[in-house]
Structure formats: structure tokens, C-alpha cells
Amino acid sequence: MTHILIAGGGIGGLATAVSLARNGHRVTVLERRDTFAEIGAGIQLGPNAFHALDRLGVGEGVREQAVFTDELCFMDGTTGEKVAGMELTQAYRDRFGNPYAVVHRGDLYQPLLSACQGLDAVELVPDASVERYEQSATGVTVHTTDGRVFHGAALIGADGIRSTVRAQMLGDGEPRVSGHTIYRSVIPIEKVPEELRWNTVTLWAGPKWHFVHYIIGGGRYLNLAVTRDNGATVPVAGREAERDHVLDQFPGIGTTARRLLELGEGWREWVLCDRDPVPAWTEGRVALLGDAAHPMLQYAAQGACQALEDAVVLGEVTETAREDDLVQRLEKYNALRRERAGRTQLIARRMGSELYHPAGERAKERNTMLSALSQRDMYEKVSWLHGDRAFTDSGTGGER
């Protein structure tokens, strides 16, 4: 049984552990924090994420806490008018083979953690921050910051956008700062007036800002995420933000959107970052995965979805792999995933600048374009992304 090390015990790292273990490997997951847990708020899962979760054997566990939304609504954030809506009901589910849902990040993480804990081939090691690695023709040695040493046949860097493994492999510096600041709040649903409890993912688009909200936690909470294109240049992660400061960032916001925004409490802020796509995520016996490989802005709602796809592909292409052919299998994983993930990175950027944040005439042109789309048109536009269930069956993925 081949032993593979994973740096990072987040969603991508645990999904990879499950995938590798179920495809015949022994796995050790090294997590820098002192516990295996997921912080954060809401997350959107397209049908492609559920295809991956089902392959990993945890799809039903995630579905139990998911909220299956009826529609993706695009609203004009200043006038309050509905511009367009993509229905996510039966026709969508028939087309793409799975639903679109929203969950709390913890409700995605916990089934993956439980799956890892139930697999004898998975070892979870907390408080193990990776400092560096060394590799030879036969294996990889990982050194942690507290002086421990771990050996394996390969190392998967699933340690996030500021990946230590990536820094050593690619040396490409700090992530790109987008200039956008996102403020997040999660509030109990009982604090939300009934007329505002919409079973939709709703996006209000304004000049240099947008506001997204949806219900999570099996209906127990409302997730609020509001983004301002404010030219921020310094990364921020999870800093507390005063309620009045958040409200002051969005002058001109329409009445209904303002009512929803005013419900927020306990706001925290992040300055969003990503990286340019790169062609190579592997170096010998070391490979990157998820945000370590292809960090993307949240605007396509695909960061976790793409990490789950990575995990499935990596597990399946390394099935039956011996220690002497792991390098070639990792290169195949890279080749199968880089085009799709890189395209998604760039689409996410474009959505922020061209779709969500225009003002004046550009906003009017966008509204005209979106309002002219039929449901069929909308499904066609997202089919390459939401409809992918091929994963390892071809080099480009795609609906089948």
C-alpha cells in the first residue's frame, strides 16, 4: 500500500484523503491548526460538486444539511428590479443530474471528516505545520515547524492560497490582491422577516459592489456576503468590521437590499486574492490541489467545487499506482485538471469586473443582455461548468 502525505486538512485535503484511501493508498494528513475543523460561512455547491461528493461516498451526508435553492436571481442593486433568474428546479436537475445547493462550510466539512475518521488507511495529524519538503527518486520527506519528520511516496499540497508547498515548488510570491473587500455575516433565520426568507441565491449588483444572500444550515441561518470594489491593496482575513462601516460602504443600495444588509451583525471582512493560472502543479513526487494549485475569486462559486473535482481525479488516476510510477500519475492528474480549473479562475475574475460591478451605461447593457436570455440559454452558458461529470474520463471534462 503506497503511503501519501497531504499538507492541509481543509475541504480539499480531507476530500483528497478520502479519495486516495478509497483507491488503495495509506494517507497521512498534516494540519497546521490544533484541531480538524472548518470555519467560515456559506458555500454554494453546483451539480459538479455533488457528482464529486457522490464519488467520494459522502454525497448523502452533505445533502442532509443542504438547502436546495429554487433559483439563482440577478437583481439590479440600485433600482431593486429583477434582471434575470436561472431556475434550479426539476428541469435544471434533470439537465445536470444533480441539484444546486447551499450549505454552511462546516456542513460540507463534517461528512468529509467523518469519512476520514472511518477509514483505517487515513491518519489525521493536527498541529503539524509543514515547513519544507525534500524529495528523492523514491520518496518525499516533510519537515514540520516543530521539528517532526514524515516520510511518504508522494506529497499533495492542499494547504491553501498561501501554500508552503507551492512556495517551495513554484516560488511565485504572494497571491494577487484583487482590490475587492468582502464582508460576511451569518444570522439566525428568526431575525429575518418572513417576506425576506427567499429560497434563492440572490445577487444584487451595483456600481463597484454586489451583495449575495441565501439560507444555509438546513434553514436555520441567513448567509450575507457583500463585496466592495474599493481598491484594497493589503490582504485581510477575517478581521472584525463595525456594522456602521459596512452599511456606509454601499450608498445608493435599493430599499429591499438595504433591509437585508441591515440585518447583518458580527461582520467580518476579507480582502479577496487569487493567482494567475499556471500550467504545472507538479514537481516529481509533489503535486498541488485546490486553492494551492488554482486559487480563484468567489464570483463563480466554484472554489470548493473545483477542489472536490481535483480530489476525485487524483484518487482515480493514482489507483493501482506503484511507488515507481507515481510521478507519471501525478503528471496525468495535472494534465487532466489544469485547463478546466484555469478557465474557471479567469471566468471568476471576469464575472466580478464585467458582470457584477459595472455602472451607468455598462450596467444597462448588462441588464439588457441578461434579461434577454431564456432558461435554455442560461443552462447552455453554465453547462461546461455545472454539467461536468466526466472528471477522469477525458482531458477536458464536459457534460455527457
Score class of each variant (00 low, 15 high):
V317T: 11
T318Q: 13
E319A: 15
A321H: 12
V327H: 07
V327S: 05
L330T: 04
E331W: 02
K332W: 02
Y333A: 05
Y333I: 01
N334Y: 05
A335S: 11
L336A: 03
R338L: 01
E339L: 01
E339I: 03
R340A: 13
R340F: 07
R340G: 09
G342Y: 04
L346C: 05
I347C: 04
I347K: 07
A348C: 05
R350Y: 01
R350Q: 01
G352Q: 07
S353A: 04
L355T: 00
H357G: 06
H357W: 03
H357V: 02
P358S: 10
E361A: 15
R362M: 14
R362H: 14
A363H: 12
E365D: 13
E365K: 10
E365F: 07
N367C: 03
T368K: 10
M369R: 10
S371Q: 11
A372V: 03
A372N: 11
S374W: 05
Q375P: 09
Q375W: 08
R376D: 14
D377I: 13
M378W: 07
M378V: 08
V382H: 01
V382Q: 03
S383F: 02
S383K: 13
L385Y: 07
G387R: 03
R389M: 01
A390W: 06
T392C: 13
D393V: 02
S394W: 07
G395Q: 03
G395M: 07
